[in-house]
Design a protein around this nucleic acid. Structure first.
Lengths: 133, 133
DNA sequence: TTATTATAGATAAATAAAATCCTTAATTAG
DNA sequence: CTAATTAAGGATTTTATTTATCTATAATAA
């Protein structure tokens, strides 16, 4: 069980956009170069963030991606869910009635993790840390 | 990102063994049947639990698997780590100096999840719940 | 109109998970 | 001692998922 590289790219891109000038769009070319990943692949990932309403895209010359208004509120969990989906991390495949005690425990644990990811915003990180890109 | 089915099988097998008579070994045949999984595959999973020292195996007629002495202390995390390994869920693949602020946050979150999984023992579950197999 | 930039569909390549097959080794009952 | 039973382990296959590429289309600004 691992977070996907796509999630890694998405988180780093969001951090970059949050730390960068908030009004000027940044092209996928540059974002991909920084992260040493192919632009087409990264663009597919960023399209998910667009669909989730976190960033917006501007086509054409001098286009790129830019944060949306609500960017101060975007949490780690928002980004992770946008990329990985929101399904739970564990499915009991054993048929013992309505609810599985094992599943319950694992889901409680998952909820602890999500709580932390929900409370951490990208903007916190930019405020707290000296971001090096 | 999902916990593997192997983890699901391992957790359910441990619950079964914990709920069952603690001295008499249970064959993989029966365990596999209950969970509707192939005996050979399950045996590979259980071998990992043996290597991790949670259960012991007895070959030969009337053999099978049985909990070891310390069974009261076996946590969810122990089992999960035995199957999935203990590597962290997130690797930053971007090269920004010694530590990545994103990685830090995700690892804190992971730690919250692990804490819960470390504090829940199989024996708790058997005590609390009316296990249905 | 041309260059630039994102979107999207199709597909390929790489990796990981799930499962099977077969052989070997250990043990116990008869 | 022998035959039956049971786990361990190596090799391989199947299936699923992730990662990545290629190509075409659409939008926009200079």
């Amino acid at each position: 069980m691992k977070f996907s590289k796509a999630t890694d790219y998405a988180l780093h891109t969001m951090l970059f956009l949050t730390a960068a000038t908030p009004d000027k769009p940044v092209g996928v070319q540059l974002l991909a170069e920084k992260q040493k990943v192919s632009p087409t692949y990264l663009s597919k990932i960023l399209t998910k963030l667009v669909k989730a309403g976190m960033i917006e895209s501007i086509t054409g010359v001098n286009g790129g991606y830019r944060l949306k208004r609500n960017w101060e509120d975007i949490s780690f969990l928002d980004i992770i869910h946008a990329i990985e989906g929101s399904a739970s991390l564990f499915d009991c495949s054993f048929d013992h009635g309505p609810d599985c005690p094992i599943q319950r425990v694992v889901l409680e644990a998952e909820e602890k993790m999500e709580e932390h990811l929900r409370n951490k915003k990208m903007s916190d990180l930019v405020r707290e840390t000296n971001i090096v890109f």
